[in-house]
Design a protein around this nucleic acid. Structure first.
Lengths: 242, 242
DNA sequence: ATTTCAAATTTGGCATACCAATTTAGAAAA
DNA sequence: TTTTCTAAATTGGTATGCCAAATTTGAAAT
């Protein structure tokens, strides 16, 4: 496994917080207490505390102690998401990301366009590595959300991608899509989206993004149709984009 | 300020990554190098590295070094909802909920319409209680999301409303909006949305929802203009709905 | 020239020790 | 008894040092 130890400690501390039924605002045991409890140095506990602090679960105050800042419940990023099928996910992305793209067309800056351009070139270059191509794909879509300059829209898009990446079924399919001959169209789609954004065309960007995800759905459908595992029951009403 | 030092170091490292134009996969300078560069101990640099690792920006490999895992651009500062202003929130709702409404127009059922009808009547009746009116308002919008029959869209809409309800500034304003003479138009807007959904008009529902939230923005603006606290800096580019 | 493999080097992992801010305890003053 | 103030204890902050994994080097074998 070879996980970094501080993560293990952090997880143990989470469990301790749960067992002790600590409420928001309550004081946690000190670093030294946890160190002795787990039989490790205070350094490691401290690192685990930093992890939990970055995750916004606790707050650390010098000379005073550490305090629970949020509930454990608010930590978990949506539990039942793994039950969401690829088609349902793609439909949600279609609805939301096309709207975000339309908004981005209004507020996008030259710098944003430049970054999108660079990412697009990376996508073309990195098609040998599925890993990197996926990362560039994600980057492209999130940059568009960022171009709206609206925190909540960025947050929404990010959440969608986090869910996608944590969905095992999607990962399985993604590799095959990227291997398929569709990769060329994938890039063409992105080029089209970028072009509409450059033109600052609201409806153009909306439609280009919609069509892109429509194409992904089609590819996914044909792959799962011919080849594949069981994706029945994931098909939804297909909106006709007006 | 009294910020914890590792955060400062982490920020400096981000700047260094930017200055050095490091690409994903590139190796970072070692902890010892940064320690000397910033004139601090390796411990602090290590803590900063942990912070960046939690943020998924870098990957740390024992005995080997640390590597850039994601671009700085893809870094999303996890949203501290409390400092999202009402106008930013309304803009996000405008973009997302109008898209959701359009989708709902396609898949809505008679039962959904019936429920919306009932909720709408409740809204008219309960205008004496701000509390209940607000609850009915929320119900109306969430029912539309449910009508899409897409889990993720429901989830997205729910999240938006949770954030709205936890934003103190919004709550403060909401009461005043509900008190104002705008309440009548509020209900008319909802009636219009419901009518478009009945007609199953995708673009009609989209525009009706957009216009509704546009009206809310206008009301909010006029209230904060005449009366109120300091809402400057929350104003965004206003998309012209096509 | 190429390959192999072990020793040296590099790099992150972890622990101990001491520092500084905060809190607490208790004695002195009122 | 209550308040005030100071010193001791508590708690997180930072630095140093040694350990272990990974990488690199270079000499020996082929």
């Amino acid at each position: 496994m070879a996980e970094r130890l501080y993560r293990e400690i952090g997880q143990k501390i989470r469990l301790e917080i749960e067992k002790s039924a600590l409420k928001v605002g309550d004081k946690l045991p000190t670093e030294r207490v946890y160190a002795e409890l787990f039989g490790v140095s205070r350094t490691l506990v401290r690192e685990a505390f930093i992890m939990l602090e970055i995750e916004d679960l606790i707050e650390v105050r010098k000379g005073s102690g550490s305090y629970l800042k949020n509930t454990l419940a608010s930590q978990v990023s949506l539990p039942e998401i793994s039950d969401v099928g690829p088609f349902e996910m793609l439909q949600a992305r279609q609805v939301l990301e096309s709207a975000i793209a339309a908004q981005a067309a209004i507020s996008i800056t030259k710098a944003d366009i430049q970054q999108l351009q660079e990412t697009l070139e990376l996508e073309g270059a990195e098609l040998n590595s599925v890993e990197k191509a996926n990362s560039a794909d994600r980057e492209f879509h999130l940059l568009i959300a960022k171009a709206t300059q609206n925190t909540l829209l960025v947050d929404t898009a990010t959440r969608l991608w986090e869910m996608r990446d944590s969905n095992p079924m999607w990962n399985q399919l993604h590799a095959r899509i990227k291997d398929s001959s569709y990769h060329g169209q994938w890039i063409d789609d992105h080029k089209d989206i970028l072009m509409q954004l450059k033109k600052r065309s609201e409806s153009g960007a909306r439609q280009a993004m919609w069509q892109h995800l429509e194409n992904v759905k089609q590819t996914l459908f044909s792959l799962s149709d011919t080849d594949a595992p069981d994706f029945d029951g994931y098909i939804f009403a297909q909106p006709n984009q007006g």
